[in-house]
Amino acid sequence: MTASPPPVLPDERLATGIARLAVRYRGHFSPETIQRLIIDSYERLAEHARIRTHLVVLAEHLATERLDALAHVQGSPGSGLPRVLFVCSHNAGRSQMAAALLAHRVNGNMVVSSAGTHPAAAVEPVVAQVLTEAGVDLTDAFPKPLTDEVVQAADIVITMGCGDACPIVPGRRYLDWPVTDPEGAPIAVVRSIRDGTDAHITQLLDSLPST
């Protein structure tokens, strides 16, 4: 039986990222799995998030997050650091804000991520601005599509206005936070949304077992 030819790369520059991830995940994932995920990440960002700038670099970042989540799922789910996933429609405002605020608060003691059911092309500039005011850096953040791996790896999934679009995985804790969408809102309103989101995060942290 003739072996199937390898998939054609949508951008030849992806080969560098594939090689880099193959070294990083040697012994965990095959080069074929890595290539499939990085191509899929590239295509999702190009089609669904409509991202064009730095697409090759962002595809590698997204593939890395997915591979880490997949490694967790295939290893020992429920062990290690708690994993929290924030989901909204565009991953440009609410979920980015909540993930950044929680990551800032827990200082590496949780794995925090965010995604969108219909991701936008870029994070809302006003969201980045109000987070900077609070001492939270959003420089490297970009809207990411929701993928099965990150949902399955999460211990807690927090939805923020994405309705029924988020898949349900048995055994996960699901919360829905009624947070106003900051898109197009004046900066004073976005500051209020930031502070309200931080209050939700305080409640979440208070509800978790002490470590």
Rank of each mutant, 00 (worst) to 15 (best):
L45K: 07
T197M: 12
Q35R: 15
T117M: 01
V179T: 11
D148A: 15
W177M: 00
A19D: 06
T180A: 14
S95Y: 03
D40N: 15
L9Q: 14
V111G: 11
R191D: 06
W177P: 05
H104A: 14
S89M: 01
S76E: 14
Q96P: 07
V190E: 04
G17A: 00
P82L: 04
A134S: 10
V136F: 15
V189H: 12
R44C: 01
G27Y: 12
A3P: 02
A199N: 13
I18H: 06
I18L: 01
L131N: 09
T33D: 14
I156H: 11
A3H: 03
R194P: 00
I39M: 11
A121W: 07
V126H: 10
V56D: 09
H61S: 09
M160N: 11
I193W: 02
G184F: 03
G135P: 12
A134M: 09
D181Y: 08
I201D: 03
A63E: 06
E60C: 10
L208K: 03
P125M: 05
R105I: 00
L81S: 09
I156L: 05
Y25H: 13
L131A: 05
P5N: 10
L205H: 06
R20P: 09
D206P: 00
G93C: 02
P82H: 02
A63V: 08
H118V: 06
T2G: 12
D206S: 08
A22K: 01
D198L: 09
H48P: 00
M110T: 02
L101I: 04
N107H: 15
D176Y: 07
L58T: 09
V123H: 09
Y174H: 08
G75V: 00
A19H: 12
P77W: 00
T33S: 14
P170C: 05
V123Y: 11
V126C: 03
A154S: 11
A100I: 02
